[in-house]
């Protein structure tokens, strides 16, 4: 058992993640061809526009449809639909927490591939200035609110204002880079257009194309560029406290050496500097556990599932990884 533990803790998390991510990428992007269907409430960008390849649908799509609903029908069957959708979403999240982002999301994986490419080319990454960064990160919550509120305002007139035009439907999808990137993985580029049918549609899809451009440029120079602004991540973080998979820290063992902070693609400073909290899943965290692999202190950081440690920082593991990677 101890031997097994030591083996796991000495694992090269990059290699492991690479394969798991690749697996999920195939599953979520091409699974549909194999009749796999994981439902409509996946807590990850398994884009609904990727038909027939998708093996399940990103929860944000039904969510935006469902909130396009008049007040009075909330207590009807449609309201029930919202509830079951949300509960299924929560069930998925409850088990794997934000690891959906670090291990499963195809859009996240694509960003990681861009990062590897940049790394191979020896081009330095960009980082945000911390002040700016703290402010910018809030965008994801604004997007989350908007993607719920806009469809609702299409169906209801609030305070006597006119309803929003109908072509505002699924507003976030219009600007979501996944709508263009994921279907393209199956050769479908039909989303890469600006829809000139109405003014709003043109504006929204035009904005979408712009976001797509920013996604590629930003994602190349910045690690996980899009994830900082992703409303899915915002939605996760509302519920991530109760999930079974956790990232734990024992502050008394932490030297605040910052090794974990350096490894963190999401620039989460607290992972090194916070020595009080025992659970440290910050809103941007994608539970990739790179920080655990980077930490040289026995048991300072650990990934745990239902309070059972599954991957722990150890001195031996740290040096094993260092020697291995430093050799290449």
């Amino acid at each position: 058992m101890n031997r097994f533990r030591a083996f796991i803790n000495g694992a090269d998390i990059r290699r492991f993640r690479f394969w798991v991510q690749l697996g999920f990428f195939f599953l979520l992007v091409y699974g549909g061809y194999f009749m796999i269907n994981l439902g409509q409430s996946l807590p990850t960008f398994s884009c609904g526009f990727n038909q027939p390849g998708r093996a399940g649908v990103c929860y944000l799509l039904p969510l935006q449809h469902q909130t396009h609903i008049p007040w009075d029908s909330i207590i009807s069957g449609r309201g029930l639909g919202i509830l079951t959708g949300l509960l299924t979403f929560l069930a998925w999240l409850f088990v794997f927490n934000k690891a959906w982002c670090g291990y499963a999301c195809p859009l996240g994986t694509i960003q990681d591939w861009m990062t590897s490419l940049r790394q191979k080319l020896g081009i330095r990454y960009a980082t945000y200035n911390l002040d700016w960064f703290t402010r910018l990160k809030k965008i994801k919550y604004i997007l989350l609110i908007l993607l719920i509120v806009i469809p609702f305002l299409m169906a209801n007139s609030v305070a006597g204002l006119p309803k929003l035009p109908d072509d505002m439907g699924t507003p976030f999808c219009k600007i979501c880079p996944a709508r263009m990137v994921i279907p393209a993985m199956t050769g479908d580029f039909s989303q890469w257009t600006v829809d000139f049918s109405t003014g709003t549609a043109a504006a929204m899809t035009g904005l979408g194309m712009l976001v797509l451009g920013i996604f590629f440029v930003g994602g190349f120079i910045n690690k996980r560029f899009f994830c900082f602004f992703c409303p899915m991540s915002a939605l996760h973080s509302l519920f991530s406290k109760v999930a079974l998979l956790k990232l734990r820290k024992d502050g008394s063992k932490c030297t605040r050496c910052g090794d974990c902070y350096r490894a963190c693609d999401m620039q989460i400073r607290e992972i090194a500097d916070d020595v009080e909290s025992t659970t440290l899943v910050k809103d941007d965290c994608m539970m990739c556990f790179k920080c655990v692999a980077a930490c040289p202190e026995e048991g300072a950081l650990k990934a745990s599932f239902m309070n059972i440690p599954i991957y722990e920082s150890t001195e031996a593991g740290f040096f094993k990884r260092m020697t291995k990677r430093g050799k290449k």
Binding site: G122, T255, C257, G258, P296, G326
Partner: peptide
């Protein structure tokens, strides 16, 4: 005691990592 962790084994990251190792802990 305090050891350095390098994320991207390129010059730009190694030098900064060394700086962090010296200062932060």
């Amino acid at each position: 005691y305090d050891v350095v962790n390098v994320d991207e084994w390129q010059l730009y990251d190694m030098v900064d990592a060394l700086a962090d190792r010296a200062l932060k802990p």
